[in-house]
């Protein structure tokens, strides 16, 4: 009997590859940290140059040193919440259809088709938004203009859908087949199985899907800039969805290109970026916490 010995160079290669992967994993955290530090470095001077009462104000006229961030932050939140409110139920329903109900051949057509939606450039979606969606919104809602928060919400919901569907579908897919068999064995119908067993068991994955969808919606720039009207008004009141709105991303994109480097306006735009970054971070953190707090024991306990 001869025990197989691992050649020395394989050991080395193993070690090398392992370190490389470790580095790649650590670097993604490192980059986020560096971006954060960069935003702080570029944004911090604004906190010295602009009084805080100005920064938390309700008016955004950067040309005249009026830097109230409130309409921008609320604008981003409004379109993001609106987009998720539409795309979450639609996305989860689509994922359930693809993962649980559709026959194999339909699934094999739908999955790549949905992935293609994710690949449509946002300018193209914005263009469709201006030409098609915005006139429809104006005609059906009776709003004075079609360039409204609602138009942005509809397009963002469409853009967040592929992310939510793909991830939610993966989550459903990873629910062990034995759960379904067990449910059927207890004479549950297909709908009862989906609603009471599969969906709760896939919950952490669906929360992840929503988090990524939120990230997609809050970070989207071009489409919102084209269709949401970009008026820096306070989006309060019942008609906020039918009025124009200015988001943080559109503000940075529209203004960063023309601002004198090192000026107050430049620094304030980095503060906007910082707020956007922190907001995304907090939302993701909240999502992660809900997953961890509920434990990761699968969906069995929901059956009780």
């Amino acid at each position: 009997m001869k025990t197989p010995t691992i050649p020395r160079d394989v050991n080395w290669r193993e070690f090398f590859v392992e370190q490389l992967i470790r580095l790649a994993g650590a670097s993604s955290i490192g980059f986020v940290l560096l971006i954060f530090l960069f935003l702080i470095r570029e944004g911090a001077p604004a906190l010295l140059e602009v009084p805080l009462s100005n920064l938390v104000g309700q008016r955004w006229y950067p040309t005249f040193d009026i830097y109230g961030l409130a309409p921008l932050v609320l604008g981003s939140l409004l379109v993001t919440v609106g987009a998720i409110a539409i795309s979450l139920p639609l996305g989860v329903a689509a994922a359930l259809f693809i993962g649980e109900i559709a026959p194999e051949w339909v699934r094999e057509i739908l999955k790549p088709a949905i992935e293609i939606i994710a690949g449509i450039p946002s300018v193209v979606i914005g263009f469709v938004g201006i030409q098609v969606v915005s006139p429809l919104v104006r005609e059906f809602s009776g709003a004075p203009t079609g360039l409204t928060a609602l138009t942005g919400v509809l397009l963002l919901a469409y853009m967040a859908l592929p992310t939510i569907i793909s991830i939610a579908e993966d989550a459903l897919d990873s629910v062990p087949e034995s759960y379904r068999h067990a449910a059927y064995a207890l004479s549950a119908t297909q709908w009862q199985t989906i609603w009471r067993v599969v969906l709760p068991a896939a919950r952490p994955g669906i929360v992840t899907a929503v988090m990524l969808g939120v990230g997609r919606a809050i970070g989207e720039t071009m489409t919102v800039m084209m269709v949401a009207g970009n008026a820096a008004r306070m989006p309060l009141g019942l008609d906020a969805f039918l009025r124009p709105v200015r988001t943080m991303t559109a503000t940075i994109a529209a203004e960063m290109g023309e601002v004198a480097r090192g000026s107050t306006h430049y620094h304030v735009l980095f503060v906007v970026g910082l707020v956007l970054f922190l907001l995304t971070f907090v939302i993701n953190l909240a999502g992660a916490l809900t997953i961890f707090r509920r434990g990761r024991g699968g969906g069995g306990r929901f059956l009780a």
Binding site: I130, T145, G229, N230, A231, A232, P244
Partner: peptide, 16 residues
């Protein structure tokens, strides 16, 4: 007015 639409290009203004 804060209600004014700030549009990114001449084309978008023309369209609106």
């Amino acid at each position: 007015s804060p209600e004014a639409l700030l549009l990114p290009s001449s084309e978008v203004i023309g369209l609106e």
